[in-house]
Nucleic acid binder design. Sequence first.
DNA 1: CAAATATAGTTATGTCAATTAACTATTAAT
DNA 2: ATTAATAGTTAATTGACATAACTATATTTG
Lengths: 152, 152
Amino acid sequence: MAKPSPLADMPPPLDSALDDLIGYAIRRAQLKLFQNLIGRLAEHDLRPAQFSALAIIEQNPGLMQTDLARALAIEPPQVVPLLNKLESRALAVRLRCKPDKRSYGIFLSKSGETLLKTLKDIAAQSDLDATAALDSEERATLLRLLKKVYQD
Amino acid sequence: MAKPSPLADMPPPLDSALDDLIGYAIRRAQLKLFQNLIGRLAEHDLRPAQFSALAIIEQNPGLMQTDLARALAIEPPQVVPLLNKLESRALAVRLRCKPDKRSYGIFLSKSGETLLKTLKDIAAQSDLDATAALDSEERATLLRLLKKVYQD
DNA sequence: CAAATATAGTTATGTCAATTAACTATTAAT
DNA sequence: ATTAATAGTTAATTGACATAACTATATTTG
């Protein structure tokens, strides 16, 4: 059962004249998407950053914690408990496999790969669910425009 | 001078296979917009929530703190320091002006109104700046689609 | 009317995330 | 060799935020 999500419901705001700002609209839409995803991932006792980490590790097997930190836009110390959690659940492993013995290579375990498949479906479903007001053409347009914004 | 903004730069991520999720794209785009706005508002020693509060008060003069909390999607205790700050800078005032003497009516001061005009320009400029990769038709489309998502 | 209950705002407390600083071990540079 | 830099970790600080408790009014109702 989905947790009651402390930040969950965004109440209908009073008229605030911010309505024509993309920054305002995107914040509200992002919150909706994020809350939806948080709820669904919670059933697997995972947070969005952990899901992102799994996806990044899959695409970049053997990467170092430093790389993961940069990719997640978090600081190295935050990577430690995150990876500890993934490792304790046997979803990922740290291996001393580099010429440089200070660093670890990070890999998904078999069950990490399996779970990630499920999580990707969940994320895709969450996306669809939270954007149910759009048809698939609009969704494609939205994605294209968002990429244009953040890739700039 | 703009503060070096602790969260500022989102580094180019490794390929992570999250690229086709709207939730992922919107988070990254939102962060870009938000960081841009934070930087610009910092020059006026204001945070986005304080700017939003000013805009909401302008549109709803005399509203109660409870209403403001709901509109900002924050808890009532958080309104206290926020309003204290606005009041200490003489941008807004709490007035016992209701039949119910437990509550305050909140209003902008003259200088609050004046500053808000400036801030709206800043926010609009921030929007344009952070979405410089889009032409104005694309911007309109993006805004329309985002509204559709969060108003749903 | 009196007592009980509810509400607006505030204060106090606890929790948790996230940044920073400092420590260990390895590696690279002079 | 000594020094400096880097990967990862631990520890300490800060800050956001929620929850609970307090005050003063207001409402309800017995």
